[in-house]
Design a protein around this nucleic acid. Sequence first.
DNA 1: GGGATTTGACCGCG
DNA 2: CGCGGTCAAATCCC
Length: 360
Amino acid sequence: MQDGAGGEGGIQLLLTILADGEEQARQLGELADDPRSRAEHYRGAARRLQCTLGKAVAVAKAVEAASGGSSRGTDRSDSPRSVDESSGATAAVEPQERQVIGNKRRKGLPRWTAKFRVPDANLEATPDDGFSWRKYGQKDILGAKFPRGYYRCTYRTAQGCPATKQVQRSDADLCVFDVTYQGEHTCHQKQRHVAVATAHGGGGGSQSPPPSCHEQGDPSMQLLMGFKDALKVETGPGALHQDRDYYDHGPASAPAAPFSFPSVPFGEAAAAAAAAFSAPGSSYFSAPPHHCPAVAGSYDVYDYEAGPGPRVRGGAEPSELGEVVSRATGCDYSSLYHHAGLDPHLPFAPFGGPSHGPFQ
DNA sequence: GGGATTTGACCGCG
DNA sequence: CGCGGTCAAATCCC
């Protein structure tokens, strides 16, 4: 597949956003057809659309600026995707939380951390992210009360999928799981909810039943939709004050976040989307369980780390881009650069193989 | 019986 | 040498 140069990543993002806008426009049209829809619905939809378009413009500009610079061509040789740019310095680690994910193996693989919250502290099941994982180890970690579980993709042997994750329950809060994902899914497994909507149940799923969410069969599409919904959430009506203070919510006692995921599951799709859209160490996504009752809980993404070392990236600076987008849209999309820069590493691209991605 | 999980041992990096 | 990550045999569960 293609190496995701910075510009291409941005273009891909642009395509994503445009597709999003298309969908939103369609929804707006549906609202128009629905006699029950009210003005506020219109307004919300219109605002979302406006935000999306503004974003598209901003990203287009950023891509243009970036492509004029250098940035590309410095991809690592050992990795199909570059693992660099913005994340290095800025996305690195949330200082207030644990981090310490600078370990040994798998250095080349992109890594991002999500924080899952389960509604019930005593359930031991790890949060279901929609993929099939196979546990291959567990270890007590120094300084942690709870052991860390090591999981790899069920299809690792069958399809050579390198995706792994580490799940550790927070010692401070029993409801919170820190999940560190490593590597992208190259397998063709469908996330459970998707699988159910399309074919038989997802492989190996011993976890929650699939919520009937979107019905797209393409995992990439689903990621995209998760992305979109995360976006929607952030840009919803009156969502112009959605950033940092979310961190103040105590995990267990946190009031429902002022937004919710209407349809996306707490899958890796959503996690990835949230990761992509989370400003470094600031955004904090949470979703009340009642929207997806079948899923263990909510997730928060608080870190995304793509590669072993900080790297300088040409073109617009991350913060600049974020600012550009924010200004352009009136929303806080400071995280967009994140996606624009890192998109190739997110588990979007490799899913359906090179030939039938949703972005082409 | 097959696949997933458990668990102690082993390995590599800092 | 210690710690974190992985392996693989034993065990469990459907």
